[in-house]
Design a protein around this nucleic acid. Structure first.
Lengths: 201, 201
DNA sequence: TCGGTATCAGACTGTTCAGTCTGTTGTATC
DNA sequence: GATACAACAGACTGAACAGTCTGATACCGA
């Protein structure tokens, strides 16, 4: 029966991600993951030394996907020559992306950060990698837009960049609380409008 | 030994809040709460029908405190006659407040929203009460500032108000992830600067 | 064809968990 | 001082949990 171990591992990760995003890590039992993925205990502990090792793999995988989403946004606006328009189009990309979100959508970062004893060097470092990845890329867009507008003062580009990440995460939370994907769209739009106002002074 | 039951109940709630904010609800055992509060099983289940009832009491208590913080901000700027300055001073109040935050600071909303099967009518309704409370009050400040500036278009005041809540929550998450209270201060400052820019057009 | 190894399947184990139950103690009331 | 009851204390229970262990089964190189 064993054929492609990587496929089984992937199925386990997918099932785990669904359940952890839904209920958090501690509330997600290994047995529940097995049922969701149609796998067995033997398979699980063959691929992961323990539950924590699953968390590590889960977060690393999620950060990779998240940074791919960042790159997708950057790629989508690469051709735009004007730095200000480029930044605004970049933000518009995610407004557009957020159209797919439902009330079921959730972010793994929230689950990871909720449980402090899960936030070890491994998982903590991965989440940090995501935050710093977004910061570096988006701050660069802000710096070039600042330069194009001849702005010498104003909010720190790094902080402005972090604000986008913060809006993503805060919106995920509000979406869950209000049972709708709409707040994400509204909040990304507001952030873009605020940035637009800042750069039009 | 039994004297003031309310005091014991309060000690249980305080201990539970510390632990739940630290590790989430599912990862916080009743036994851990008993140890943290120096109480007993008998005491716990005398005051709470079950663990879920504790969650309900915990969230209601937290929302009350959160809305008190909102009122504190409103009260602090009540004397300011100019609507724009009032709004900016209001936001400044929380920048100031955020100075007390450490890397240990956390928000119960994140823990509640993380675990979907904890988000029933009871807890969900309480978190909604908090969001709508902030939205109503802050949107009102925005509407008056808009009127004072003669602004007829721009971001929706409700969405602008939600953005403050979103920035709070997203910043809590980033603070936890980066192990510092600094991002909260930086993000509240950026939000205030963006609003300032919007209202100075 | 035959060992070797990766890939599982699932019974089993020790621990931890939420919740129960029995009994005790302070304290107010008459 | 007897009664009544709220406020515990803590031993106990059944279920759920993470993790172990013994095999079984496919596939691969020699």
């Amino acid at each position: 029966m064993p054929r492609d171990g990587q496929l089984t591992r992937e199925r386990l990760l997918e099932a785990a991600e669904r359940l952890v995003e839904r209920n958090g890590f501690a509330a997600t039992s290994v047995d529940a993951i097995l049922e969701e993925s149609g796998s067995s205990k033997g398979a699980f502990f063959h691929h992961f030394a323990n539950k924590r090792a699953l968390a590590h793999a889960l977060v690393e995988r999620y950060v990779d996907a998240d940074l791919s989403l960042l790159r997708a946004g950057l790629d989508a606006v690469e051709a735009e020559p004007d730095p200000v328009q480029k930044l605004l189009a970049f933000l518009g990309f995610y407004e557009n992306w957020s159209g797919d979100l439902t009330s079921e959508s959730a972010c793994l970062y929230i689950a990871v950060v909720t449980e402090r004893d899960l936030l070890d060097d491994q998982t903590g470092g991965q989440v940090e990698r995501a935050i710093l990845g977004w910061r570096a890329a988006v701050a660069e867009l802000f710096r070039k837009a600042y330069a194009a507008r001849g702005l010498t003062h104003g909010p720190d580009p790094d902080d402005l960049a972090d604000q986008l990440f913060v809006v993503f995460e805060g919106s995920y939370l509000v979406c869950r609380a209000l049972g709708s994907g709409e707040p994400m769209r509204a909040q990304l739009r507001v952030y873009r409008q605020l940035v637009e106002s800042l750069l039009s002074d």
